[in-house]
């Protein structure tokens, strides 16, 4: 199938392979060694690596710089970009900057509210929202124009993604919301971490009923649990996260030293089950500060070796 951009991720998805992506959070300082190391650890087991954009509103080294670093290492970054901190001037400018380094994937997000982070007294921007950012990137890429209408000298050749949370409320608009993102021009989706597989499959059923799985590539998001404590924290404290009681009970059923192994096992089982779910085009494995486990998960889930994407 022909691709619209030079993105390796796009090529792999359009060729019909189950894609595998992962993500890394940039460091809280200027020392970039950390991201280089994380990239090295997972590069042979994933097709692309998302770099988060000041996730949970904790100030970090910028996503763009970390993406450039990965690109210079020959890896395939996905630039996460939130509308919380930049107005439409800064967003367009950063998109062009990323494109100038041949960063060919972008994930359009609104971002966690700044009250969760280290600058809770700061102002937020939200000049445009995540859906409008999808439209903006597509406009720049496809029309070759700025939002203001002027011609671009060089279009950003970016494969355009967004997030979807099948577990947030109101549930009834979660499929329509995906339809809205597709209408805005989204080409791939990475979902919120899936622990409630039944509910995810119910959402996917609604997605298929409207044929939305044929209009964008849906990568199922998975995060292995490290411990019962992490599972409880995610259940109680992380907005929009659905961690069923069975997940907590299963982790509680093994001794403390083996909970992490059990979490990995559960993650692998989830991937195996979701491989059978029609419309799932790949997996987004977010092993938070646990990137060294990504190769093991990918191999055990039967997703290794990766296609070369050329």
């Amino acid at each position: 199938m022909t691709t619209k951009t030079p993105s390796k991720l796009e090529k792999i998805l359009r060729d019909g392979h189950l894609a595998v992506t992962s993500e890394c959070g940039p460091p809280r300082g200027s020392n970039i060694d950390h991201i280089v190391k994380k990239g090295e650890l997972i590069k042979d087991h994933v097709d692309a690596i998302n770099i988060t954009d000041n996730q949970t509103s904790m100030t970090r080294l910028c996503s763009l710089a970390a993406c450039i670093r990965l690109k210079l290492m020959g890896l395939e970054p996905v630039l996460q970009m939130v509308t919380r901190d930049r107005n439409r001037i800064a967003l367009q400018s950063d998109i062009l900057g990323a494109a100038s380094f041949d960063i060919n994937n972008i994930l359009c997000l609104s971002g966690d509210h700044q009250s969760f982070g280290d600058c809770s007294q700061g102002q937020n921007v939200h000049d445009i929202d995540s859906i409008q950012l999808i439209q903006a990137v597509r406009h720049m890429r496809d029309e070759g124009k700025f939002l203001g209408g002027d011609e671009l000298e060089g279009k950003p050749e970016m494969f355009v993604g967004a997030a979807a949370n099948p577990f947030a409320d109101p549930f009834e608009i979660r499929v329509p919301r995906l339809a809205k993102k597709i209408a805005a021009g989204v080409e791939f989706i990475q979902t919120q971490c899936i622990y409630n597989l039944d509910k995810f499959e119910e959402w996917m059923k609604g997605v298929r009923e409207r044929g939305l799985h044929e209009k964008c590539f849906i990568l199922a998001g998975l995060t292995p649990m490290k411990s019962v404590g992490m599972a409880k924290y995610m259940q109680k404290r992380v907005p929009g996260m659905d961690v069923p009681e069975e997940v907590i009970k299963r982790l509680q059923g093994v001794e403390k030293g083996k909970q992490a192994d059990e979490g990995i096992k559960m993650c692998i089982e989830s991937i195996q089950r979701l491989k059978e779910c029609e419309g799932v085009a790949g997996f987004h494995v977010m092993a938070i500060e646990w990137e060294e486990k990504v190769p093991e998960i990918v191999e055990a889930a039967g997703l290794y070796p990766r296609p070369n994407g050329n």
Partner: peptide, 26 residues
């Protein structure tokens, strides 16, 4: 909307409440 989203809601909407505070309606 705490993020003044024009095409909301965001992924933080839970049981009718906003992610910033369970007292705030989404």
């Amino acid at each position: 909307c705490a993020k003044r989203l024009f095409n909301g809601p965001c992924g933080g909407s839970t049981t009718g409440k906003c992610e910033i505070n369970a007292e705030v309606d989404c």
